[in-house]
């Protein structure tokens, strides 16, 4: 889980072009949207692309977004759960 969360931070920075952010700037429990990283609705769509590209997980319903993408930890937990289901 720790490793996954570290990976996610780098992947998010790359996918969302957060050029002035470093992985260590992102807290595991910090909200990604609005406050925190200040991501918006297009970023949420890019995170859906990220899940598909790096983890082969598809999200068809964008309304799931806010829950899954609340923080690095909720994202990692979602990915872990999905991978268990697939295995």
């Amino acid at each position: 889980m720790e490793k996954l969360m570290e990976d996610l931070k780098s992947q998010i920075i790359e996918q969302l072009n957060l050029q002035e952010v470093k992985p260590e700037d992102i807290g595991n429990d910090e909200p990604l949207f609005k406050t925190g990283l200040g991501l918006d609705s297009i970023d949420a769509l890019e995170l859906i692309v990220l899940l598909q590209q790096h983890y082969n997980i598809r999200i068809a319903n964008p309304e799931q977004g806010p829950e899954i993408f609340h923080s690095i930890r909720t994202m990692a937990a979602f990915i872990t759960a999905q991978q268990k289901q697939q295995a």
Binding site: L16, N17, I42, D43, L45, E46, V49, Q52, Q53
Partner: peptide
């Protein structure tokens, strides 16, 4: 590949 919403905008 996988179309980018952030580019489409």
């Amino acid at each position: 590949d996988i179309a980018s919403p952030a580019l489409f905008v």
